[in-house]
Design a protein around this nucleic acid. Structure first.
Length: 227
DNA sequence: GGCCAGGACACCA
DNA sequence: TGGTGTCATGGC
């Protein structure tokens, strides 16, 4: 049960864009670096991820074939600062092996597929869940698939616009239905929600001054869920 | 020293 | 189907 007015989310986007300006996501030089970052940032602060990516860069491992050729122990050492390094090394290798096996390491061909096909294929790879898949589609493939993360859910439910129990796919659909399929809009909106989340909506409630509060929309759910 | 972070997955009832 | 534990490092 999302907010009824489909223009509400556009109003929210414009409010955040006015308050914070364009965020210019994703901070990466290549689509493959986006993908590596998307996997490494799972439940991890971006600061830790940048350290891992720097290690990979230093060893010239930010290319798909290089990861496949790399010594697994070296790979683990690079991934380590981002936490969960055994898992994430496995996930990184699983992704690279998949593209190697099914697309002959041709990342552009893989990312060039239609969104439904690409999303289904991404979700079939171990370690790629819905958020990671949508991040890869939106920021690496540059195709419109809205990314829902913990902040998105927290911000919207805390303000009473969606129930706190809403699932990933349902919340994603709220955005997909309400917004035009515009890559720039999706990229900036997600980045802005993360920015707001960092500043105002951590687990310790600290919402004073949150620009989301000024968005005019009738709230349908109990506001300020006790997250 | 404890809490938190731009999740995903296995396991269990 | 939904809830819970596990994976692990670095910053505050």
């Amino acid at each position: 049960m999302p907010a009824r007015d489909p223009k509400f989310l556009l109003t929210l986007f414009e409010t955040l864009l006015h308050a914070f300006g364009p965020q210019g996501w994703w901070p990466a030089e290549t689509p493959f670096e986006v993908i590596v970052g998307a996997i490494l940032t799972q439940n991890t602060s971006w600061n830790n991820v940048t350290q891992a990516i720097e290690r990979l860069k230093k060893r010239d491992l930010l290319e798909l074939p290089r990861i496949l050729e790399a010594d697994p122990e070296t790979l683990r050492e690079c991934v380590k600062p981002s936490g969960f390094y055994n898992q994430k090394t496995r996930y990184l290798l699983a992704f690279c092996r998949h593209v190697h096996l099914h697309h002959h390491c041709h990342l552009e061909a893989f990312l060039g597929q239609d969104v439904p096909l690409l999303r289904r294929e991404l979700l079939s790879i171990p370690g790629i869940g819905p958020e990671t898949a949508d991040s890869i589609i939106l920021y690496a493939a540059q195709k419109p698939s809205f990314v829902v993360d913990a902040y998105t859910k927290r911000i919207l439910s805390r303000h009473g616009w969606v129930p706190p129990t809403i699932g990933y796919e349902a919340l994603r659909q709220v955005f997909m239905d309400a917004l035009p399929p515009d890559v720039y809009l999706f990229q900036e909106f997600h980045a802005l929600l993360v920015r707001v989340g960092h500043l105002f909506c951590r687990r310790t409630p600290r919402c004073d001054g949150c620009p989301v509060d000024v968005v005019p929309e009738k709230k349908q759910f109990e506001a300020r869920s006790p997250l």
